[in-house]
Nucleic acid binder design. Structure first.
Lengths: 248, 248
DNA sequence: CCTTGTGAATGCGTTCACAGCA
DNA sequence: TGCTGTGAACGCATTCACAAGG
């Protein structure tokens, strides 16, 4: 349609970096920079220039040899690729500390996403409002999904309530889940699942910190994690799992 | 010392999975399971059995051919490797929605980590208490670091305050940073940096969601992200970047 | 002349397949 | 007999290096 889907499918690693490029490009745009080289863009995103070029090449030939990439053009192309050219209503299941923080978070409802519904099992919360949004009971999910056109759910319940919350969301029609509960969720193959576990992030840091002497030093990369305090599952406790990032 | 550091250094990907195995092993332990096979452990962590064996082999020969791995033994070994055999005091810089949520989070202060200090620039917050912890001004960082033995800082400030917060933390002596601000931070090579950007997670989900028709369907993996609402940097907005995870 | 776009080389991590051993 | 531990094969992603082209 737009460019010409170059080669095969876009690598998962590239998809994640596209979001980083988008952020960087937005900064350049705000600074009224109209053109950037792969090397500059890479520096801001902490990615090698060659990788930037390879990544962008998956979206077609966006650059101009000799000068670089047009900020506005590439930004638009990336947003389209990431599906940010539309609005995604999302539901947060689990209105605890984290759920509330996300609901109130600026960035969470910006750039393509809008927290449109909140769900919790606590009778004391149901009916109340958080961040201007009414908290509903889980049984309202099917209706909410249909009425709001929800496709994405964010799970921020305690670990022991996560699977149930997940099942209810999937049952209601949600097809993509961002899970913050420190627990492995079972979902149908057709549902896209992504985990974020904050304790894993901390664990990776403590690992590197404990091994400072041995070998060289590095930043961390990233992945899922855990949270269980010491034995079994616990409170919502931990949070996410996480991103990745290399040192320069 | 304990086992015998088999081969070279532990791959970054393995480190992240070790945290997952720990969580799974804790569940088995809670269920009084004494021995697990690589296949079972892998199923719970959503990792291939062969990968589990390869990962654990980096820690030495922990298993018993013919029967499997002793839950307690491997759990202990992994915790030691991740540096969880000690307590890590952490400071949260930026007491906004997310900072507060993390400070109050059960899991965050469990299993090796304790939120020991809170820092913010807001005069209205300084001096108050959040989650039973006093909020201090940034200038108190050097003293806090020394007094509490802080090595790890979690940055949950708005994007435009993140670099300054980072600099102050590093200047104060912090050597590992978990950054939730949607912005690339500049740190000395010796400082371990890890990013978590929630909007990236959402972007990856919307990408896959938008491409459901084309090619097959998959879960997402994971990585860093962004947050900028539309143009430049904004409020604390987004959050993290994140973990990874494959579909079964 | 300068930077993109991309074959080819390289490196890393995962998976296979089986020898080794309780 | 059964499962771990691991050499070897494989596949994906990054990086190199340069031809292509504005």
């Amino acid at each position: 349609m737009t460019g010409l889907r170059s080669k095969g499918p876009i690598p998962e690693a590239t998809i994640e970096r596209l979001a980083l490029y988008r952020r960087s490009l937005a900064v350049f745009k705000a600074r009224s920079v109209t053109t950037v080289g792969s090397e500059q863009l890479g520096e801001m995103a902490r990615v090698a220039g060659a990788t930037v070029r390879r990544d962008l090449s998956y979206l077609g030939s966006l650059g101009t040899r000799g000068s670089g990439y047009e900020v506005g053009k590439v930004l638009e192309r990336i947003e389209k690729e990431l599906g940010l050219d539309r609005l995604w209503p999302i539901v947060i299941v689990g209105v605890g500390n984290l759920g509330r923080a996300l609901a109130r978070s600026e960035g969470f409802s910006s750039r393509g996403f809008v927290v449109s519904a909140l769900v919790d099992t606590d009778p004391g919360l149901i009916g109340s409002e958080v961040a201007g949004i009414r908290v509903d009971a889980p049984k309202a999910l099917p209706e909410l999904v249909k009425a709001l056109g929800l496709e994405i759910a964010v799970i921020t319940t305690p670990a022991d309530a996560a699977q149930r919350a997940c099942d209810e969301a999937v049952q209601a029609g949600v097809t993509a889940i961002l899970n913050f509960a420190p627990r492995t969720l079972e979902v149908p193959p057709s549902v896209i699942l992504r985990d974020v576990d904050l304790s894993v992030e901390l664990h990776v840091l403590s690992f590197h910190q404990s091994h400072r002497h041995e070998a060289g030093r590095r930043g961390g990369s990233q992945q899922p994690g855990t949270v269980v305090p010491s034995d079994a599952d616990r409170e919502l406790g931990g949070l996410a799992q996480g991103s990745r990032q290399e040192r320069q």
